[in-house]
Amino acid sequence: MPVPDGVPPTALVTGASGAVGAAVAGHLSGRGFAVGLHAHGGRDAAEGLAATLPGPTAVVTADVADAAAVEGAVEEVAGRLGPVGVLVTCAGVRVDGLLSAQDPEVWTRTVAVNLLGTFHACRAVLPAMLRARAGRIVAVTSPTATQGRSGQTAYGASKAGVEGLVRSLAREVGRRQVTVNALSPGFIESTINASLPDDVVDELRGRTDLGRFAVPDDVLPALDMLVDSPYVTGQVVGVDGGIRL
């Protein structure tokens, strides 16, 4: 699939050192985008991925909870590859724990990375998209945002915030032909879920209609739809195998 007409051919993927981010970055590179790969603690992984991609890349590091750092990373990508036409926010953290016992700093950090990090990335790329009158923003969220799950109040609240941001931002920027949507994968075979006990994994797998977890590539067809369509905006697209949390 080619780059959509009118959309600047540079994509930025936050959290590109993670399983989903790496799959997204590789896929967009294969489609012909120049790709900015953002990482925080996983720069080596992002650089290793960049070395395997067919098109131009730029690896940048930033704590997405830091607005100035994100702005600097976006400026670096734009300076090396051109203005960002597609943003996919895959950076995220999840630390499970009952609200009554969870450290407030852990709770706050989860919201700062997942929700404020999405806000910072969107805010940094929007000026160029609005000038170009074209752009695609895709935020990664979670079924926990709408279904809830014990032990995930911070994660669920942060992802619910992302979905609210997506719906409202879509209304703000639609007249400039910038679309804003979210992808909501279920449990994915990735590092964020690697610490779950085996019995929890088995239970959750049994709660999906398809009887399996997703692999990162399962999100790519839905991603293509959101990148290619100029007329889908303000939507949360579930790619969750029918999971019931």
Rank of each mutant, 00 (worst) to 15 (best):
A194L: 03
A194N: 05
A194R: 10
A194I: 09
S195R: 13
S195P: 15
L196C: 04
P197M: 06
P197A: 10
D198Q: 13
D198F: 01
D198C: 00
D199S: 12
D199V: 15
V200Y: 08
V201E: 00
V201S: 00
V201W: 07
D202S: 15
D202Q: 14
L204W: 13
L204N: 06
R205S: 03
R205T: 11
G206Y: 10
G206P: 02
G206L: 05
G206C: 02
R207H: 10
R207G: 00
R207I: 00
R207V: 01
R207S: 00
T208W: 00
T208K: 03
T208F: 07
T208L: 02
T208C: 02
T208I: 06
D209C: 05
D209N: 05
G211N: 10
G211W: 13
R212A: 11
F213H: 10
A214G: 15
A214N: 02
A214T: 02
V215N: 08
V215Q: 15
V215E: 15
V215S: 13
V215F: 08
P216N: 05
P216V: 11
P216Y: 08
P216H: 01
P216K: 08
D217S: 14
D217G: 14
D217N: 11
D218G: 08
D218N: 09
D218H: 12
V219L: 15
V219R: 01
V219P: 04
P221G: 05
P221W: 09
L223Q: 02
L223R: 06
D224G: 06
M225K: 00
M225E: 04
L226N: 01
L226V: 11
V227M: 04
V227S: 07
V227E: 01
D228Y: 07
D228M: 02
D228I: 00
S229H: 04
S229E: 08
Y231P: 05
V232H: 11
V232M: 12
T233H: 04
G234P: 05
G234W: 05
G234Y: 03
Q235V: 14
Q235F: 02
